[in-house]
Design a protein around this nucleic acid. Structure first.
Lengths: 224, 224
DNA sequence: TGCCTGCTTAACAATTTGATAATATTATAA
DNA sequence: TTATAATATTATCAAATTGTTAAGCAGGCA
């Protein structure tokens, strides 16, 4: 059961489509493409992507029009929308943001920039909503220090909570044991090998749910 | 609804100013803009806005300085102040909370998030209209320094009252011990480790009600 | 001054947490 | 299949954190 984020790209230039698609797939995203504005709306409705990249200049409906249409549908109120624009036109930027776009990408596209911008948008998005991460029946509220599962509040100890929050911050991503140690214990502190396991166990026990998967020889990942 | 709420926005980037202005005006707010820290202070004095959005990074006086200056003027003791920060620097967040900001907005700005955050800030403070916070059977009157529980008036000492009022201002939110120290004692004063505990105990005792929860290793939160 | 009140602190008790050791279990490659 | 490495489980203990109580101290006030 993969939790990879879905990204829809709409552009009429096949080359650009391919470049973006390739780079995002490398990052582990699931990519859907569309060749026109109407196609984009079609695909969006079908796949309900997490993020949509819209070229502003497209035959038929342009990106801004597509954005307007989508934003008026309840399913896409919270979807991240990013515009692709030529460097030149400044005016469009503002117009686009007014329409409810979340960010811009300028042509020509630099793959590294593209990828890091997309990644950071997702990161921000996850933190938002008042710091609540919601995944299926589980909600992790950083501010209230609370994990809710099926409407029931579950109290985790500090380390347990931090560990769960870390894993849940990127569902599907495998966290290496070292990575976990650095993030939660810091580089100074050194703890034994079995420490992580024990915390993982406690989380599993308290949540009473198999949402943390062991990847033997590598680490752990969170997924529903 | 008598008159529209006034919001002052200070940022040196015209684009951002315009985006925010547009979105807030759409929501029916009256918007004033300022292009620098000094300008912000100027406009604030003239228009006495209900809420001020300050970019942290500005030429001349930065947002934190402006906040400090305003907070020291009686007219702006109760004004809502929100910082705009680049998502990178976490350190500034903490510094900002110490200065007396009411919330944060992260760049890049997502208009929907901006608007809903502003709305919810106003909602939160309308609840404490007349300076009274009401939560279930508990009413906290900021002006009279009075707490009423089940119709009975309870007298809390100043520090106890401030502590309760702080926690109750955001039910459910966990306040870190440091956060509490900064909000109630300020950054200058340093008090011992057990001071907070003792006050918490007295509140619990006087209210005779389990509404303050300890989150070990983290802080305290208020909930019914 | 002497009393009261509120705030802080010290000292100790109570509690919770997190790390580890010891052991069992599982997955994987030979 | 078996040997082996990696992880799961469990119990235990030290350390960290908080709760409680009482005492000290400063300021306000009659």
């Amino acid at each position: 059961m993969s939790t990879a984020k879905k990204i829809l790209i709409a552009d009429d230039e096949p080359d650009i489509l391919e470049i973006i698609q390739f780079n995002l797939q490398q990052e582990g995203y699931e990519v859907i493409t569309a060749k026109s504005g109407d196609d984009a709306i079609e695909q969006a409705k079908r796949h309900l992507p997490d993020l949509i990249i819209l070229d502003v200049m497209m035959p038929g409906k342009n990106g801004i029009e597509v954005c307007n249409i989508l934003r008026n549908m309840p399913s896409f109120k919270k979807t991240l929308i990013v515009f692709l624009t030529a460097m030149s036109d400044e005016g469009t930027q503002i117009q686009g943001l007014e329409t409810g776009a979340d960010d811009y990408l300028n042509k020509p596209i630099r793959p590294k920039v593209l990828v890091s911008k997309i990644n950071s948008l997702f990161r921000r998005f996850e933190k938002e909503d008042n710091g609540i991460i919601t995944l299926g029946e589980i909600a992790i509220d950083r501010e209230k220090y609370l994990v809710r599962h099926h409407g029931k509040d579950i109290t985790l100890a500090r380390k347990e909570f931090e560990l769960l929050a870390l894993l849940a911050s990127r569902p599907g991503k495998v966290f290496l044991r070292n990575e976990i140690l650095n993030q939660i214990w810091g580089t100074e502190v050194i703890v034994g090998d079995r420490t992580i396991d024990v915390h993982i166990r406690k989380i599993r026990q308290k949540l009473n749910l198999d949402c943390i998967t062991t990847v033997k020889g590598v680490g752990y990942k969170f997924e529903l």
